[in-house]
Design a protein around this nucleic acid. Structure first.
Length: 342
DNA sequence: CTAGATGATTCTGC
DNA sequence: GCAGAATCATCTAG
């Protein structure tokens, strides 16, 4: 039995007919005794509403609302609705928060785009600046503020777009809700259905929002990578720092592995970080080993230097340890004479 | 502009 | 976690 027949049967039932009498629409019409206002006509009128002007439609709607058959039709619709809603239920279960959107939210929060205005942004910028390496000076500051400015720009665009979406979403939701409330006078619409419709709309808008979040994340990543690449924008250590490091290296050539304390001391002397000292020694060891010949001259130079220093120190305290390398094992020593000549 | 130098990063083995 | 090695990206002298 299709819906329309069921509806007619329902109406017939309401009109005091027995089920057995409901054979076809004609018999219903006959039994109702209203040939000029039969159900088919009413349905026809409902269908035609969409083709009419607003005023006509309003008038027609009013006429339908006042029609004596309206409550009966309404209850039949309710009955049909009940069935369909039952079949729909279960499909539309509450879905858990989208992990994708959660990931994007977390990232935007961490990058200081969606979080509180001051905290995250500058923190992220500071992190980027810190990652840029302990290169002290004006450049770090410029990069820092530049990064912050760019991030603020992204943040602003993100928020204005988000606001637009939210506004559009709430406007659209209101509009749909009003429409549904209005329609609920002519067809059965439960508050739950309205709720579900609102949820559907929100889902649609949140998928749009996800696109916004995604593109914002991409923008942040591009910005970030640009600034993280800047960490490779290195500065050579100044001459004095290189000298201090070389002095230590060549005077400890047998074991050019400064202890943690020695590294700290060197870092302080050279105004660089301990990890930079480690990098420097790492690079130096490998490059020295690879091409001892090339470093020979430099090695001799520093050997003389340390020898001279040692001499002046030993003049004051003859028992003091000479910084000159005894060179027992470890890296090959440069060949030099005690007076500094090759 | 280019080659070499140099600081930083990444990968691998211990 | 550290050191060695390879590699990257930039700096710098010519």
């Amino acid at each position: 039995m299709d819906d329309q027949t069921r509806m007619l049967a329902g109406l017939a039932g309401l009109g005091g007919l027995s089920q057995g009498d409901v054979g076809d629409q004609d018999s219903v019409r006959k039994q109702l005794g209203q040939p000029q206002q039969d159900i088919g006509d009413i349905l026809q009128q409902i269908m035609a509403i969409t083709d009419e002007s607003l005023d006509e439609a309003q008038a027609r709607k009013h006429a339908l609302n006042c029609h004596r058959m309206k409550p009966a039709l309404f209850s039949v619709l309710c009955e049909i609705k009940e069935k369909t809603v039952l079949s729909i239920r279960g499909i539309q279960d509450e879905d858990p928060p989208d992990p994708q959107i959660m990931r994007l939210d977390n990232m935007l929060l961490a990058e200081g785009v969606s979080g509180p205005e001051k905290g995250g942004g500058s923190a992220a910028a500071a992190a980027a600046a810190a990652a840029a390496g302990g290169s002290p000076g004006a450049d770090g500051g410029i990069e820092h503020s530049d990064y912050r400015a760019k991030l603020a720009q992204i943040r602003q665009i993100y928020h204005s777009e988000l606001e637009k979406y939210e506004q559009a979403c709430s406007e659209f939701t209101n509009h749909v809700m009003n429409l549904l409330r209005e329609q609920s006078r002519t067809r059965p619409i439960s508050p739950k259905e309205i709720e579900r419709m609102v949820a559907i709309i929100h889902r649609k808008f949140s998928s749009i929002q996800m696109q916004l979040k995604q593109s914002t994340c991409e923008a942040v990543m591009i910005l970030r990578s640009r600034f993280l690449d800047a960490r490779r924008k290195r500065r050579n250590f100044n001459k004095q720092a290189t000298e201090v490091l070389n002095e230590y290296f060549y005077s400890h050539l047998s074991n050019p592995y400064p202890s943690e304390e020695a590294k700290e001391e060197l870092a302080k002397k050279c105004a660089i970080t301990v990890s930079q000292v480690s990098n420097w020694f790492g690079n130096k060891r490998i490059r020295y080993k690879k091409n001892i010949g090339k470093f020979q001259e430099e090695a001799n130079l520093y050997a003389v230097k340390t020898a001279v220093d040692a001499a002046s120190v030993s003049a004051q305290a003859s028992q003091a340890n000479s910084p000159a390398t005894p060179n027992s094992g470890g890296y090959p020593a440069p060949c030099y004479t005690p007076d500094g000549r090759l």
